[in-house]
């Protein structure tokens, strides 16, 4: 099972995503934004970072980069695609997910170990979680405020397309506490917090049991391995 991670100029969590895939048991493949070659991967991760310096809008230039035409094509045919943080912004700009992401309502960059509730598990990236499960993974962004008009928000809720919601603290002013979304088919998921930073004891978020012990993000990468085996 080959999972590709696309590196854009300004990506910074691509290595962590590759490592998370390896730890989950997949074969991690590096992909380059400037090419039109997905190298036969079975799933794709768009990593966090500041692609193209966040110029124009976060994720906007990356959404129009050469490899994205193949990614959009593959996503529309059902290939699992996960967007993390800047990757979520790219998916929104590419119209693979709804809504938009704007500057945090408090105006500053925030980094915290964030509690989330898994709202939907019928996706390629969340099937190893249970509905309502609470997980803790790191969050770090300056422009993570999720917005959409009321009609879109109602549709997302009604169709069960909210994948993750912030619990206890809404760290960026996201409407209806939305932290992550899925598409109708369930192959595309995007979220602002970082599952790839919570995959190995000693390097994850602080948990009640021990410091840096959180590995709640690993199931996201295990999910896609299971999803691809099933399909």
């Amino acid at each position: 099972m080959r999972v590709g991670v696309i590196t854009f100029p300004g990506s910074l969590d691509d290595r962590d995503a590759l490592r998370a895939i390896t730890l989950a048991g997949g074969e991690a493949v590096s992909l380059w934004h400037g090419e039109h070659d997905l190298q036969g991967v079975d799933a794709i991760v768009l990593p966090g970072g500041f692609s193209y310096g966040d110029y124009l809008r976060c994720g906007a230039i990356a959404a129009h980069s050469p490899i994205m035409s193949e990614v959009i094509d593959a996503a529309n045919k059902g290939m699992p695609v996960l967007g993390i943080c800047n990757g979520f912004q790219v998916l929104v700009e590419a119209h693979l997910l709804a809504g938009g992401l704007i500057r945090n309502d408090h105006g500053t960059f925030i980094r915290r170990d964030q509690k989330l509730r898994v709202e939907n598990v019928d996706t390629a990236w969340t099937n190893k979680y249970s509905v309502g499960q609470e997980i803790v993974i790191p969050l770090k962004n300056g422009e993570g405020g999720f917005i959409a008009d009321e009609e879109t928000l109602d549709r997302l809720e009604g169709d069960g397309l909210v994948a993750f919601r912030y619990v206890d603290v809404n760290p960026n002013g996201s409407l209806r506490d939305i932290a992550g979304l899925r598409n109708a088919r369930g192959n595309v998921v995007g979220l602002m917090p970082h599952p790839e930073h919570a995959v190995e004891p000693g390097f994850g978020p602080d948990m009640p049991e021990a410091m840096s012990s959180g590995t709640d993000g690993l199931a996201m990468f295990q999910s896609v391995l299971a999803a691809t085996v099933l399909s």
Partner: peptide, 13 residues
């Protein structure tokens, strides 16, 4: 311009 109905955090600051 940012949409009028939306929060413009940079403008507010």
């Amino acid at each position: 311009m940012p949409k009028e109905v939306l929060l413009d955090p940079a403008g507010k600051a």
